[in-house]
């Protein structure tokens, strides 16, 4: 079991539904976020390229945030999901500094928080909240260990990339390009 997310940048319109949905699903306080949208524009009028992307914790295979955590609050499950246990976290911020994607933030209650791949929903057989609301259906979620899963198939058949692969973290959120 290796959970991964695949996001089709050719369909994403940058609407931010995934950001609000995460807020309401996961009680992310106003003023904070677990996911966000970036817009990249290249070229000069009228030959321009635009890429919109929904970004979040990459649930890295080689997760520096887990390694640097002094208490074990940051940990990785067998299915690849990287989580923080709030009442083991001392708020030292080491994991925030260690993440090349700036995917973590300090919750106003003091502990560090980030995307959980909506692990509580997976338990119930539901897709992550962001995936389930996306109006362009450009987000896919599933098991990379299963060669027949939608995500495996998409990665097999389509051109894709990950963010900052040079950081060596082996990110598990893939972008179809």
């Amino acid at each position: 079991m290796r959970y991964a997310m695949v996001i089709d940048t050719l369909k994403c319109v940058g609407c931010s539904d995934c950001v609000v949905a995460c807020q309401t699903e996961n009680n992310v306080p106003i003023g904070y976020c677990r996911d966000w949208i970036t817009e990249t524009v290249n070229g000069a009028y009228p030959s321009i390229e635009l890429e919109l992307k929904s970004e979040r914790c990459n649930h890295c295979d080689n997760a520096p945030c887990v390694r640097c955590c002094p208490t074990g609050a940051s940990h990785q499950l067998d299915n690849g999901i990287v989580l923080v246990t709030a009442d083991e976290c001392i708020g030292c911020g080491a994991c925030i500094e260690s993440c090349p994607y700036d995917a973590r933030y300090q919750h106003p209650d003091g502990y560090v928080d980030k995307c959980t791949f909506c692990h509580h929903r997976l338990e119930k057989g539901q897709l992550p909240a962001c995936v389930s609301v996306c109006p362009t259906k450009c987000m896919y979620f599933g098991d990379l260990d299963d060669p027949n899963s939608e995500v495996s198939q998409l990665l097999k058949n389509r051109k894709h990339k990950t963010l900052a692969p040079e950081a060596g973290t082996k990110p598990q959120v893939y972008y179809l390009i």
Binding site: I37, E39, V41
Partner: peptide, 23 residues
């Protein structure tokens, strides 16, 4: 010209400026 910006999420007061969490 290359332009890269946050459309939403990160450009809020508690996130990007305070990602510098070590004081």
């Amino acid at each position: 010209m290359q332009e890269e910006l946050f459309t939403s999420g990160r450009n809020i007061p508690n996130i990007d400026p305070s990602l510098q969490i070590w004081h």
